[in-house]
Amino acid sequence: MRAVWLTGFGGPEKLVPGDAPDPVAGPGQALIEVAYVNITFVETQFRATGAGPYRPELPMIPGNGVGGVVSAVGPDVDPTLIGRQVVSSTGGSGGYAERAAVDAAGLFLVPDGLALDSAVALLADGRTATWLVHSAGLVGGERVLVEAAAGGVGTLLVQLARAAGATVVAAAGGPYKVGLARDLGADVAVDYRNPDWTDRVRAAVGGVDVIFDGVGGTVARAAFELLDRGGRMLSFGLASGEWANISEEAAERRGAQAIRPAMDPTRLRTFTESALAEAAAGRLRPSIGQRFPLHRAAEAHAAITSRTTTGKTLLTPH
């Protein structure tokens, strides 16, 4: 089969198309004919530095989120899964390929009425956004600032916060991304590349009660100054290359919280299923900004790291 190999840690050029042995569904596994692969920002960091929860042997096939049709199952796996459309994590590797053998217990059936590409786009980002809204304890009437509002998670946070009854302020980089966030339902949308962006937020809504921080760095530190007493900042990403690094003393002075919440692994499935169900019902719309054929995975990574992408980036093996 065709695949993309990570030959070393470094730039996007370390992703090299090539052949790989066809995987086989072992005990407890299902074999997926991959139609779409989702790329996460974390994967670009792993490619660049090797930072991650494990140290694989190189070369390896990266990729942690796939969607397609089950073509075979291993021993002790329900044979009625064959022919079903599913999305699944791979466990951290093996996704950038035409086929992937995955743990059958981790499969998610694609709900009726939801396109397969949308389901793949929601696999990682949908559960993250749903978990963040849950962790924030968001209630109607609160003012919510979403950083990186045109990204994969940010576009979903805008919609979920709006559905929860919040006043949504979207911060994104560049006019096109600002317009996308506004189209998704943001009440106020600002370009955080403008030096007075926080002044514009204050003029529109005063302070904010919740910040979903997907950028980190100077953007997040500026956003933190918008928090009113009792507010909370939840940091989940560092598109800038660094975390917000708000000290406990600074948070205490504002009477606010700056937290980096930890995902409860026992809730992963619940949050994923919730996102898929909301999308199937038409209440959540993933934004797929760009698609690349599998052999151009290096270009996809380069686009993400240059921050020229919007929404979700997918690879298409076929």
Rank of each mutant, 00 (worst) to 15 (best):
V139W: 07
T155I: 08
P75D: 14
G216Q: 00
R260T: 12
A124R: 12
I61H: 00
A25T: 04
A203I: 07
E147D: 14
A239K: 03
E225P: 12
G165W: 05
L156M: 11
P62W: 00
F236E: 01
A251M: 01
W243Y: 12
R291S: 01
G26M: 04
P12T: 01
G91H: 11
A204L: 11
R200L: 12
L81S: 08
T272S: 13
R221H: 11
G92I: 14
A239E: 07
G11I: 07
G63E: 05
G91N: 03
G106C: 10
G126I: 01
V139N: 05
Q85T: 10
E98F: 00
R267W: 10
P12C: 07
G91V: 11
F9G: 05
P56V: 14
I32Q: 05
V146T: 07
E33A: 15
V37F: 00
Q290C: 12
E249L: 12
P111M: 02
D209K: 06
L276Q: 03
P75K: 10
A35E: 14
R232K: 15
L184Q: 11
S71V: 12
E33L: 09
G217R: 01
T80I: 05
A3W: 01
A172I: 02
P59D: 06
T7E: 15
A256I: 01
V219N: 09
G10W: 08
T218C: 05
G94V: 09
R143M: 10
V190R: 00
P59S: 02
G26D: 07
A150I: 00
S306R: 13
G74F: 11
A172C: 12
V24G: 00
I61A: 02
A121N: 02
V153A: 02
R296T: 00
L268F: 12
R221G: 09
D112M: 07
A223F: 05
A258T: 06
